[in-house]
């Protein structure tokens, strides 16, 4: 029982990332009908937004501290971040410490801008082209984006820590009545999961309860008719693309403390996210979220020692195996709609 809970918890953070990326992919596919291979790159750009903000905040200038001396007896030179000058030392420290959550505010406008530019500048011209062309051009774009990031940030992972308050782990088991030291769970992973739930909830609420969302849903169902009603559906879909990019970007921002970002992290997640989307059912938003969490948890179950001893290597292939089985037995995926990409 405790092992079961532990594995479910372990699966949640990866599952959250899958769900968020798959949600964005599905939003783009459902609205614009485009298969976006550059979505993983958006996730990666989000992660590097956090890195960038951290670097900006820790930008410092050297001052000479007369009160202290180095080993030669000269006055000590210390690097003082500009943030200290503006907010004072303690507040400045807190800001730097909280740079990753703060990066959310930084990433939202950046990601929406990136998404809108991408849609208007490139993807717009590919609506009428076959899906293969869309895959290829976004694949090319993903290569370009990740090479640009590599040029500026290098090829190595860049560790960026979570705020001090969320470092370390806590004993989840004692809270629900297990013996201590059995179910230990890092704080930040819980934060990530809650964050993902909030974002997913927000996206669904936005689509369900706002007029804008209603129009977008109507456009997903029948784009032409909505257009005939005199609504500029293209503009709304562009905004949805920006939103999907922001969702992917935020998923990336918050993932930074779990896994130090490198330039190819997007591609690693992309392949799995596509599998998630297909398992959930092309064009189904709840399906994408469900499949994301489901596959994340399955993956973590498959990496239990007992399971690996029973079927060696299952932890490496479980997601693909599930995808193959689902695709062959339930061609529409778990919750796919009828008539969406069923060829």
């Amino acid at each position: 029982m405790d092992a079961l809970i532990l594995q479910i918890l372990n699966g949640l953070d990866k599952g959250s990332a899958y769900a968020l990326i798959a949600l964005g992919l599905t939003l783009i596919f459902g609205t614009l009908g485009v298969v976006n291979f550059a979505h993983g790159a958006l996730f990666m750009i989000g992660a590097f937004c956090a890195v960038t903000l951290n670097r900006i905040l820790t930008l410092s200038h050297t001052v000479i501290d007369e009160t202290r001396t180095d080993f030669l007896g000269k006055p000590l030179q210390v690097d003082v971040p500009y943030v200290y000058d503006i907010f004072g030392e303690s507040a400045g420290n807190a800001i730097i410490d909280w740079s990753v959550p703060l990066a959310i505010l930084f990433a939202i406008p950046v990601m929406i801008a990136v998404g809108v530019i991408m849609e208007r500048g490139l993807i717009k011209h590919f609506y009428k082209r076959p899906h293969a062309d869309q895959i290829l051009v976004t694949f090319g774009l993903a290569i370009v984006l990740q090479e640009i990031i590599k040029y500026f940030y290098g090829a190595n992972p860049i560790p960026t820590p979570a705020p001090e308050a969320f470092k370390g782990s806590f004993d989840f088991g004692t809270m629900i009545g297990f013996d201590p030291n059995i179910i230990i769970y890092p704080y930040w992973r819980l934060v990530y999961f809650c964050f993902a739930v909030v974002i997913i909830g927000a996206v669904f609420a936005f689509l369900q309860f706002t007029t804008f969302g209603m129009v977008v849903r109507a456009g997903m169902a029948d784009r032409e008719t909505v257009g005939l009603l005199g609504i500029n559906i293209d503009r709304r879909f562009t905004i949805m693309f920006g939103l999907a990019a922001a969702v992917a970007g935020l998923a990336g921002v918050m993932y930074v403390p779990i896994n130090p970002p490198n330039y190819h992290m997007g591609m690693d997640f992309l392949v799995l996210s596509f599998v998630v989307v297909v398992v959930g059912g092309m064009g189904s938003l709840p399906g994408a979220v469900l499949a994301g969490f489901l596959l994340g948890i399955l993956e973590s179950f498959a990496s239990m020692r007992e399971v690996i001893d029973f079927i060696p290597g299952i932890n490496q292939v479980i997601i693909y195996l599930v995808a193959i089985i689902i695709l062959l037995t339930r061609p529409r995926g778990l919750m796919g709609r009828k008539g969406v990409m069923e060829d």
């Binding site: 298969v35 899906h131 895959i135 596509f274 599998v275 297909v278 092309m282 995808a323 695709l327 062959l328 061609p331 990409m341 060829d343």
Partner: peptide, 8 residues
């Protein structure tokens, strides 16, 4: 399957 499903 064909299309994107085949690719996946």
């Amino acid at each position: 399957r064909s299309g994107i499903y085949f690719s996946i």
